[in-house]
Amino acid sequence: MVWSFAFGVSTKKQEELQIQIDELVIIKKERTIMSDEKKSALSFNRRDMLLGAAGLTLAAGAVKAQQVSPPLAPQIPFNYPETEFVYEAIVDIEPGLDLGKGPLGQRAMVPITGGTFEGPNIRGTVLAGGADRQLVREDGVRLLDALYELQTDDGVIFTVRNQVISSPQPGQPRFSFIQITAPEEYGWLNQSIHVGTLDSLRPEREAVLVRVFRLV
């Protein structure tokens, strides 16, 4: 096994990842047997490319299918992405407006009226004036698309766009991807892809809790 684990992965997580990998390796082995019989064009392309990646040159015509299908390409280490907590925001909202049914489904708009946010290197307030546009798709999945501004304690304003997929089954966790556009002072926020979680704070507060994680 050549998988390299990044630092900071918990043992539990490593075990889970290992199980996923083991499943994958089994599938690969099954495929190897298959491709030996079928000389699958799929594996052929794969090997050709991986050899290229390793900096080797080899005439494509010389590749034999029997040599193909290394278990997930030892030339390419399997790097696991990790996440890192950035901040959490309590976003105050007003009751949603029903916008009726559009061509793509039922629509709603939830005004954002304020709130606060805080993380290890950042804190401040949620500015009023943003909103979350929602669409309920034909399959019952609710798509949220919130656009709003945060202002840090040192006066810098950045824009957050949070796109959530919400399952029709109640109680399911909700995840999102989050685009942040910040001015120079907080330029580090522009340099990563972010994902988020979304929880309701009702009935205690007419607000949602958004946690933001950087994809490392």
Partner: peptide
């Protein structure tokens, strides 16, 4: 008190990422 136990964890549980599939693109 109003927000209850959901607020301000020092170390929030990050989302888990599970491998879906890989694409080799030429």
């Amino acid at each position: 008190f109003f927000i209850g136990s959901i607020q301000a964890q020092d170390n929030p549980q990050p989302p888990e990422l599970s491998f879906a599939f890989e694409v080799l693109v030429e």
